[in-house]
Write a protein that binds this DNA or RNA. Structure first.
Ligand code: MN
Ligand code: MN
Ligand code: MN
Ligand code: MN
Lengths: 217, 217
DNA sequence: TTAATATTTTAGTCTTGACTAAAAATATTT
DNA sequence: AAATATTTTTAGTCAAGACTAAAATATTAA
């Protein structure tokens, strides 16, 4: 049995491992999970005891195959519930993360399979992130941050790198949503801002915003 | 903040208090919650500290107004989730209780309000139990156990007193479901069994089964 | 290549919610 | 009314998962 707290650690290690090499530092986990480094050391030992993580003192943590699958299962649940909340209960995409943080720990394989079917087996959640299937597999849509796109090119907004409430609300305010067709029309070197054009309007966005918007070309 | 464990105790005290006078013994709670009496004493003190229960040593426990409302809110969530599982995810009524035991602790008022609307504000759960509204109010359908019904009378099966998996599976096997029109045709004093007639068939049921089937006349 | 700094681990505490065993209070019999 | 049985509470433990402070290790800079 994997506890709620263990699930949260596995998820954190998984996410951190995916952006860099696969071995993660105690401090990085501590920051992600908002706990102290000493608490992380304790938990990481437990995960290693349960064969969910590889851990060598002072050298960081990585997930075992079993740990990785467990992490993906939690992520699958999180993203399916987010999809449910938006598609069926009409929540906005900025409201669902905190509720999904709770729902992702509900234990029932049958429930998740049925929820998956009820939602017509979605492949991506409301933030454009891929939903693993029940074996933990998924394919990420190839997309590029606007930062890396040269003026003149265009694509469809398929995911956001930052899913924070503040950022999503900013996008709501500026009427930018997943699926929108976006053309990059200008880049201003002075402040590294971009000017982009949608079906309905042209707006200028900061470097920080550009970085977090991913288009598939 | 009310913890998951506190919510379970409030629910137990509420259910026990409803069948008898409103004051409940330590032992009764212990049995309901499957814990030892000493653990109950500890928790009951915490509930009293938080103004959720009235407690006098050796004299039993009752809920305060606030405790009662909290209990009803948990019960509301439990029954709404059970309804969701049966109506939307096509679970059978004998499968939903254990999952609802987990879901009832998810904290988000907005979620429950939206779930309620999504289900078209149901008044009763899959076992015929009333669903409190967001103020904790509900009206129970008037119904009588078959035990108290004289042969010759008939009514509609509106709830079951026992929601255990074993009993619900028995009803599935015998194709008895809520909403069925049932006529009591005979009572056999020797073993206190009843013979009942539905639209499709006539069957004999034991006293124990009869006791747990409630018809509204 | 030391010295200073940063990271990580250890040791010891705390809280929550459980437990056992023993003591105290209440209830039931004789 | 006393003896016995039952219920309830108290006292002391335990495990999980967090914390602080101090020690150990690793990294970076002088
Ligand atoms: Mn999320
Ligand atoms: Mn998401
Ligand atoms: Mn139930
Ligand atoms: Mn029910």
């Amino acid at each position: 049995m994997v506890t709620l707290s263990e699930e949260n650690y596995l998820k954190a290690i998984y996410h951190l491992g995916n952006q860099g090499d696969n071995t993660v530092s105690t401090n990085a986990i501590a920051e992600q999970i908002e706990a102290k480094a000493s608490s992380v050391t304790d938990m990481v030992k437990k995960l290693a005891d349960k064969q969910l993580a590889n851990y060598i003192k002072y050298q960081g943590v990585s997930l075992t195959e079993e740990g990785r699958l467990t992490a993906r299962t939690v992520i699958r649940k999180h993203r399916l519930w987010e999809t449910f909340l938006v598609k069926k209960l009409n929540f906005s995409w900025h409201e669902v993360h905190d509720i999904a943080e709770q729902l992702e720990h509900i234990k029932s394989e049958k429930l998740i399979d049925k929820l998956d079917d009820f939602l017509d087996n979605p492949t991506h959640d409301p933030h454009g992130d891929p939903i693993p299937d029940k074996h933990g597999n998924y394919t990420k849509i190839k997309s590029k941050s606007i930062l890396e796109i040269k003026p003149g090119n265009q694509g469809v907004l398929t995911s956001v790198k930052d899913s924070s409430k503040a950022f999503l609300k900013y996008l709501n305010k500026n009427e930018l949503a997943l699926g929108d067709s976006i053309k990059v029309v200008d880049f201003e070197p002075f402040d590294e801002s971009f000017t982009i054009e949608t079906k309905t309007k042209t707006i200028t966005i900061s470097k920080n915003v550009a970085k977090n918007l991913c288009l598939s070309i």
